[in-house]
Design a protein around this nucleic acid. Structure first.
Lengths: 229, 229
DNA sequence: GGTTTGCAAGAGCACCGCTCACATTTGTCA
DNA sequence: TGACAAATGTGAGCGGTGCTCTTGCAAACC
């Protein structure tokens, strides 16, 4: 249902939704998830506090919207990062550096998606597809990382406990034809990158590795050197 | 000033301090940093809310105390983990697994120290020494990771931008005689481990790698395989 | 035994998320 | 065009928060 006919009301609503998200994001820049104040947003919006609840049923709903947006935006950046990469390895480097650039440009958004869990917030299922896009964007640097998997996988009851089974199942869930070795490499590389950014943004490098540009680049290259391209 | 003579008043105070921290930790277990409520603590302590401020000047002060304790506790665990390790490599594995065990046993404490930054909270300098203990415990698995560094380092103005200089400076700051290659390996390994735990505790493995025991073990071993022991 | 000192009480301030009954605006359709 | 319904904004209010401040009391010390 494309329904391109937007009534002015729908248009205004979308506009307001975006303004709320923008204000929330701005507020999040120098506060943090738990501190997000709907009242403050309403104040800046020059509207009574309860009015905001017409747009987001709760603070958690707003957070979810921000998280989905953040995943989407990050995925966009990663997908675009390797546009001019000459080979797979260069694509990996480009994407890893793009991830850091994105995280540093908006540390609060990085924290939102890869930071520690938020108060009583439980991420709804709406967020798993956008989260998958990020992983897929990274998987694209690997052979088979873009080809759709032939067999849709029978989806057994529960996750297998052995690593091989888990790797196979995850590749199937992502819908790509990735070898298990490659997927394991990807998970390790992703963990390393997320960890390095967590430490950098958390200020754990202060006094030692600041700026961390060279350190990060070295870690990314070392990761790349671990496989055959 | 050892001052072993504790007046009953000091004793009672320490007792209360500990009780507050315990309650805070318990509360943090199923809430999260920003949600820490001094009022709730006072309620459980059966005391009026303002009384708590006699012990911790602010919520941030309490958080700082918890962070320092967490670093200390983690460092204790890591130091003890490799007691029966036969060689360096086994020590690394043992400590990496101990880190995960600690994090899974108390995810809120892990989030406290390695999670995303807390609201307006700025970690005071009190926390950097305990944080260093953790790194030192891990560095101990490397040759020279325990030997005190001969030269105290001149401590130049500002951190150098090139990686080699940063590595040398950091080793000096930690006060250990670690080669630059080894330190770089350590940082990478630490980043990977922190990242893997961040993802696991953040629920990013749900549906794919759950339980993540084998995955984590594989990542740790792969990391170990990257250097000569 | 008197004085100092530490601690708890309780009221109060300004904020928060969220609800609800009510008023107003706005798009749609007879 | 006018009536009606849906969407939106209002404002009071509930129970919670961190934190401050003055006041009284009891324990520790000389």
């Amino acid at each position: 249902m494309p329904e391109s006919r937007r009534t002015p009301r729908q248009l205004a609503r979308e506009e307001t939704l975006q303004r709320i998200k923008d204000l929330a994001l701005a507020q999040l820049a120098d506060a943090s998830a738990g501190e997000l104040s709907l009242r403050a947003i309403a104040r800046e919006l020059d509207v009574v506090s309860s009015a905001v609840y017409r747009y987001f049923a709760s603070r958690d709903d707003l957070l979810t919207a921000l998280i989905v947006d953040a995943y989407g935006d990050l995925a966009d950046h990663l997908e675009a990062a390797a546009d001019h990469a000459s080979d797979r390895r260069a694509a990996w480097t480009a994407k890893a550096l793009a991830l850091r650039a994105w995280a540093r440009a908006a540390p609060h958004r990085f924290a939102l998606v890869y930071g520690s869990t938020i108060p009583g917030y439980r991420a709804p299922e709406t967020t798993i597809a956008p989260a998958g896009r990020v992983v897929l964007a990274l998987a694209a640097v690997l052979p088979g990382g873009t080809e759709p998997r032939p067999d849709p996988a029978p989806s057994p009851d529960g996750t297998p406990a052995d690593l091989t089974g888990q790797l196979a199942l995850t590749a199937a869930a992502l819908g790509i034809a990735l070898s298990e070795d490659d997927l394991l490499w990807l998970v390790g590389a992703f963990a390393r990158v997320v960890g390095a950014l967590t430490l950098e943004l958390g200020g754990h490098f202060v006094g030692g590795f600041e700026p961390a540009d060279e350190l990060y680049a070295a870690l990314v290259e070392e990761e790349a050197a671990r496989r055959e391209w």
